[in-house]
């Protein structure tokens, strides 16, 4: 087993399998890493290409801050509403039993509707709640109520209602496994030790589900915060949320007087999502001692 003369070749041979990953890494590098790095780098560039903090400063302008705030309101409220209603629906489904038809149907439908963001969703609500939407016209003719209300559907309020349509099913999808994870033995052990139904929920089920619930809500937040297509189609005036402001920054030459503001706004989105993910990681770490 003399190895001295072969060691160089062997080292090469050991590295050779890693070469098989080159196509993938190259692809990811070009189409994911380069764009992301471009966003970060260009955020600090002026129109002349020089280093500047002007773009970042422009994020502090009232218009940009209001938009960010609206984005956070939209993502936050739909995460909480979607999280609560989704958890309720998930519980209704799980308590119907593991083989029930209700469960199968709800999960299948949720799988579709959670992906149902984008353009078709906007038109679904235009067809329902728009000026000549089916529900709007039905309520207008009887009992004579006007739910059109001057077009709230096409503003922030409308987005909240519409986003819940995919947030609730997404919550069902991610929360059903958490509910399934509640073992029968835990309930029986609690009952056996003297717990009433209420005490079981108060002392066992709720504390056990809280991390999963909060984690799911954070996921819903990130999901709504990043969503673009539905809002792009639905919103006709102004740029109530950050993704739409980015669109204007990309399509009109100069916005708020900053050439590369679009990049800075994109960076802002990365930061917000990163904060959410960090919260999520902290949450996991706090509970990892007892979670499997």
């Amino acid at each position: 087993m003399s190895s001295t003369h072969a060691s160089g070749g062997r080292r090469l041979a050991a590295a050779a399998p890693a070469l098989g990953l080159v196509p993938f890494l190259l692809f990811i590098g070009i189409f994911l890493v380069v764009p992301t790095v471009t966003v970060v780098a260009t955020s600090f560039q002026g129109a002349d290409g020089g280093l500047t903090l002007d773009n970042i400063r422009a994020l502090g302008s009232e218009a940009a801050l209001t938009t960010l705030w609206h984005s956070i309101i939209l993502a936050g409220s739909t995460a909480i509403i979607g999280g609560a209603l989704g958890a309720l629906l998930a519980w209704l489904v799980v308590s119907a039993g593991p083989t029930s038809r209700l469960r199968r149907v709800t999960l299948a439908v949720s799988g579709v509707l959670a992906q149902f963001g984008g353009v078709p969703l906007a038109f679904a609500f235009i067809a329902t709640l728009g000026f000549s939407g089916v529900l709007t016209e039905a309520l207008r003719s009887w009992p004579g109520v006007d739910i059109w209300g001057g077009g709230w559907l096409f503003g922030l309020k409308g987005l909240i209602v519409v986003y819940c349509y995919f947030q609730i099913p997404l919550m069902v999808l991610v929360f059903v496994p958490a509910l399934d994870g509640l073992r029968v033995q835990w309930r029986e052990a609690a009952v056996n030790l003297g717990a009433s139904r209420w005490q079981y929920w108060r002392h066992v089920a709720v504390p056990l589900l809280t991390p999963a619930f909060l984690g799911s809500v954070l996921l819903l937040f990130a999901n709504a915060f990043a969503a673009y297509a539905t809002a792009a189609v639905l919103v006709s005036q102004g740029n109530p949320i950050t993704p739409l402001l980015i669109r204007s920054a990309l399509t009109s030459e100069v916005l708020l007087g900053q050439a590369n503001l679009g990049f800075a706004l994109a960076l802002e989105m990365i930061v917000v999502v990163a904060v959410v993910m960090t919260l999520y990681a902290l949450l996991l770490r706090r509970t990892s001692r007892w979670m499997r």
């Binding site: 790095v37 915060f225 673009y228 669109r247 989105m269 990365i270 999502v273």
Partner: peptide
Amino acid sequence: LTIPAIVIVVGI
């Protein structure tokens, strides 16, 4: 999953 699509569009 963590980088919003619109961010990638901006940079791409």
